[in-house]
Write a protein that binds this DNA or RNA. Sequence first.
DNA 1: ATTCAAAATGTAAACGCTTACAAATACGAT
DNA 2: ATCGTATTTGTAAGCGTTTACATTTTGAAT
Lengths: 343, 343
Amino acid sequence: MSSTDAAPTLDDVARLADVSTATVSRCLNTPDKLTKATRDRVLAAVKELGYTPNFAARSMAAKRTFTIGAIIPTMENAIFARGLQAFQEELDRRGYTLLVSSTAYKAEAEEKQIRNLVARGADGVLVIGHDRDPAIYDYLRQQRVPVLVTWSYDDAAPTPSIGFDNRAAMRTFAERVIGLGHRHIGMISSMSAQNDRARMRIAGVKDAMLAHRLDPATLDLIEVPYTFDDGENAFLQLMHRSPQTSIVLCGSDVLAVGAIRGARHMGLQVPADVSITGFDDIELAQVTHPELTTVHVPHHRMGKLAATELVAMIEEKREGVSQRLETTIVERGSVAAIKGAKR
Amino acid sequence: MSSTDAAPTLDDVARLADVSTATVSRCLNTPDKLTKATRDRVLAAVKELGYTPNFAARSMAAKRTFTIGAIIPTMENAIFARGLQAFQEELDRRGYTLLVSSTAYKAEAEEKQIRNLVARGADGVLVIGHDRDPAIYDYLRQQRVPVLVTWSYDDAAPTPSIGFDNRAAMRTFAERVIGLGHRHIGMISSMSAQNDRARMRIAGVKDAMLAHRLDPATLDLIEVPYTFDDGENAFLQLMHRSPQTSIVLCGSDVLAVGAIRGARHMGLQVPADVSITGFDDIELAQVTHPELTTVHVPHHRMGKLAATELVAMIEEKREGVSQRLETTIVERGSVAAIKGAKR
DNA sequence: ATTCAAAATGTAAACGCTTACAAATACGAT
DNA sequence: ATCGTATTTGTAAGCGTTTACATTTTGAAT
């Protein structure tokens, strides 16, 4: 209705409702501490003025923001979207707001983003993977901001994590495809520096090779950034220098989709001429042709559990407890057995 | 080094550097107003304490946050990712931080998100498309928060916009494909309620039909949400009820990719049996087979211009000026001409 | 040496909330 | 009616910055 000069404050509401500011504050935060009569009066005033509490003032006074920050490597593709969505939903349910920022996979960018989030008063922080400059962990500890790692599980790490064992997951998966008779193996990974997930997946493949008496040194590995184009280029390069490659394991579905396109552009049939696999099982894995055989990650569950745990860490002021989730293998159509394979 | 009990404040820094809090503040905000000697002393203290300014306190005192909020319909797919990335980069360059939140295409969720952003002190707000409850615009006006619309251009709208003419873009595109001889046209659109972009794209198709003496009433239109599955299901439904359909125009690349999968599952060849088109030209359009013929939107330019304009609105305290960007048609492989078409 | 304007620094009042504590009020038991 | 307790409301002190204004310092000009 009325259109005063500046944004209305608690004082304005208090004056209009003829109560103290404390009462207005209580009405907004702990409404059941008020008589219905006053509550209604205050609410009416709030509505009439179109009052919105000032977040900065509130969080300064309360020393709480009910905000949680998440730093993810990228928003450009959907890798983290589903998990984050679930994380956000659970947070919502518990009265927290999510602040997201992305680093474009630049380790240096992460520290800045984290400081920003903390400066903004994040009550807790969610990060992807364990690997990062120890200074970041020191800073977070000094600021007393709880951190939770996700997308990775490592019991031995000092930071609690809710995720899965990337190495074991990839190992199991690789063993399965090697069991199909593949001997000339290529791998396209994201850059492994400062990225334990990528590194562990590579290690997993090597574990599997070892288990099958293949020399891990023969793994034709190529590390690239994270786009479709990167995947395609890597694939072309790989097939060019190792034409006998029968399967290319990709560190992510995005890279795998790029690789499939590369195969098409080279005139190779997938999986008849070459098998290609992904990792993550994002929706994208089901729109390619052939659809992608990949490792399914429990995005939703992981996001939800992470939210639950992080909120508990904050509210109960306790250390986080790690939790290992299981991954599963999803066979679709991008892998074929080698003809004449023993098993 | 030291690890005091709570997060260090300006006061702590001031004490350590043996200056007043005002000096510390100036050192952080307008460093050239200080002697090099004091500046160095303060900076050293900042570093020693690991001081990070408290954002809430700062924005309360300065009544500025250098934060801009953006509300997008979804983060689940990459439709808005590229534009937002460019928006963010330009903002960064100008010293602003971006806060993003998404509504999952729920109109009701938008108001809440916007209030939240404003409460958090956003100096300006970016939204997608013009359509929304007028109450939202009223609120923003009352709070004196500049708003800029993007992904849509409408000279007549009261809110300034930096985008393209969805209707004209779709009309031109549809005319082109109709010119290829298609007479039985299907369309899969996002839900058009509270979504001028979707509505205008539909209108564009009808415009084109009219221009080609086709009855717009014969357009077989189906509206669904925004996922791959929605696109696939819509396609199946469409082809089931109108088997003679020769081309399906989709309101977005995501729906189109779903439709292509639907065609594959039905055993239909694209484009031999049926043509399918998209809209947006996100990277996804190039990983399907066939690659998608679509309307290219200048994501990057749009994001960058939006950032520039919104910051100008804030800093120069002036009305925004709208700007219309051009779209182009990208022909890839998902459209075929009807055999024996006149022209 | 003295003067004066300019530059550097300090003082202290906001900013809009929350909350400990104090005061007032309501209500049941006597 | 009176008292005591529980409930509701008010008072006012922070929370950590920025910034207008006041004060001090600096250094060039005399």
